[in-house]
């Protein structure tokens, strides 16, 4: 890994870490949702510091260079994150749909009650 890449990783991770904490303070991000980002950026910081270990692991797994290994880890991390978000989105969608149904059925029942009284 080149020194430039290590510096970019280190700075990028610090910035994302800082953004997470800031958003949590502003109550724009839930703590449980931020954990993956925190852990992710922490791992990147570790990777930029302990370059030799990363190189050793990359070599064992058969990566051409340790930079490739770092990118691989980032891609896996992002895929997992997107998948989790997809599931959350589907759950939210389902909840809104059910609320929508509930409101419609309730309004219909109220209307019929009102009509019966007349």
């Amino acid at each position: 890994m080149s020194l430039t890449l290590r510096i970019i990783l280190f700075v990028g991770s610090l910035v994302s870490f800082y953004l997470c904490v800031k958003k949590i303070k502003q109550a724009k991000l839930k703590v449980e949702n931020s954990i993956t980002w925190m852990v992710g950026s922490f791992i990147l910081i570790l990777m930029s510091i302990f370059e030799n270990t990363v190189g050793w692991i990359a070599n064992k797994f058969g990566f051409m260079s340790s930079a490739n290994f770092v990118f691989f880890i980032i891609i896996v991390f992002l895929l997992i994150q997107v998948f989790i978000d997809n599931i959350r989105l589907s759950i939210l969608n389902e909840k809104i749909k059910n609320l929508n149904h509930y409101i419609a059925l309730k309004e219909n029942a109220d209307e019929r009650k009102a009509n019966n009284k007349k």
């Binding site: 809104i96 749909k97 929508n100 149904h101 409101i103 419609a104 059925l105 219909n108």
Partner: peptide
């Protein structure tokens, strides 16, 4: 039954089934 938000055909059928 009128739904407050348009959620598509499937949602419409499902609310009918609930009813």
């Amino acid at each position: 039954i009128s739904l407050p938000i348009n959620f598509g055909l499937t949602s419409g059928i499902q609310v009918g089934m609930k009813y």
